[in-house]
């Protein structure tokens, strides 16, 4: 069994407890061994970078250095992979690793700072990956499918990745920057009905609810509107920040626009656990602000056959042939 180093990030201990709980359960089912990086610190989210450059990278650098150190001690096979579950953490770790090499002066200064704490990090030592990437590429769809005991038939889900997982994608790990299909494939393996959600990699608003609420509400509204147009029961996300914005600010957004969306938003590990037969309570269900229970009640019911009304452009045309979607031809 491969052991991965795991960087949970601050949200997993507070706002995204449901993510942490469901991940623990799913990891058990899939024999995924995640070793938490000891005494990790906050990655700085999107805040520190806008204040001070070298300190921001040194902050991330400490995590990389600790993880690399731990990897060396454990000396297990494959343990040079550092997995993050939060998109911003994933991006920050990957970004520091990437830029410390691309801009040597940055790498040198970060290491100079780390040296004060007796630490150091050589870029490229660790492979930084997002949890979803590990689940789909290492564990594999077939293993996930094997473990499904309660298929999510009848549940229409909107796969929602947000921005910082498929972009900027320094290591070219994702199928696409705009319309990646990794999450779709996982959810389909669980038996859910997955809508072809065009906004799957649009922004949730990030920290905007705290800075420019009107900007944030508009971004949140678009996502709710999109998921609603496709008659999704549930939005499934891979990121604590996305979950927070869509879930906790849904009411305020509705008030702002006089809309009445009720779209529960949960983590992909939660629906995985559900399909694996785990008890919803143990997966953190119930901690969402927009209640997911009505949606979950749909599991096992007949699927609604509905593409968004007036979605003319995508309706299967009887007339001229459509170009085939040939993902294998995508180069990157």
């Amino acid at each position: 069994m491969t052991q991965y180093l795991f960087y949970p990030g601050c949200a997993m201990e507070s706002s995204a407890r449901a993510y942490a709980a469901s991940l623990a359960s799913v990891a058990r089912t899939l024999d995924l061994d995640l070793a938490e990086v000891k005494d990790w610190n906050c990655c700085g989210a999107t805040e520190y970078l806008g204040i001070n450059l070298i300190p921001a990278y040194a902050l991330i650098g400490r995590n990389l250095a600790l993880a690399a150190q731990q990897a060396k001690q454990q000396n297990g096979s494959g343990a040079h992979t550092l997995v993050a579950s939060c998109s911003a953490c994933y991006l920050n770790l990957a970004k520091a690793d990437h830029y410390m090499a691309e801009r040597p002066v940055l790498g040198d200064r970060v290491n100079e700072a780390l040296a004060v704490g007796g630490l150091g990090y050589k870029p490229g030592t660790l492979q930084i990956r997002h949890l979803l990437d590990v689940l789909i590429n290492d564990i594999g769809i077939s293993r996930i499918r094997e473990k499904v005991t309660r298929p999510l038939h009848g549940l229409r889900v909107a796969p929602y990745l947000g921005c910082m997982v498929p972009r900027p994608d320094y290591d070219h790990r994702w199928s696409d920057h705009e319309q990646p299909d990794e999450l779709d494939r996982v959810l389909r393996a669980l038996g859910a009905e997955v809508i072809d959600f065009p906004l799957k990699s649009e922004c949730c608003g990030g920290h905007m609810p705290q800075i420019s609420p009107n900007t944030a509400f508009e971004l949140i509204r678009r996502l709710l509107q999109g998921a609603d147009q496709y008659k999704a029961d549930l939005i499934v996300t891979v990121c604590p920040m996305c979950q927070m914005n869509l879930d906790a600010y849904q009411d305020e957004t509705n008030r702002h626009f006089h809309t009445r969306y009720r779209l529960p938003t949960v983590f992909f590990t939660q629906v995985m656990g559900l399909a694996f037969g785990e008890d919803p309570g143990a997966l953190g269900f119930g901690s969402e602000i927009v209640d997911a229970r009505p949606a979950l009640a749909r599991i096992g019911t007949a699927p609604v056959a509905a593409e968004p009304s007036g979605a003319g452009p995508r309706a299967k045309a009887a007339g001229l042939p459509m170009p085939g979607r040939r993902p294998e031809e995508r180069e990157r």
């Binding site: 995508r314 459509m322 031809e329």
Partner: peptide, 14 residues
């Protein structure tokens, strides 16, 4: 082959 420029939707949008 413009399918590579996914943001233009060729192959996805009829």
């Amino acid at each position: 082959n413009p399918q590579k420029v996914t943001q233009y939707g060729y192959g996805r949008l009829a």
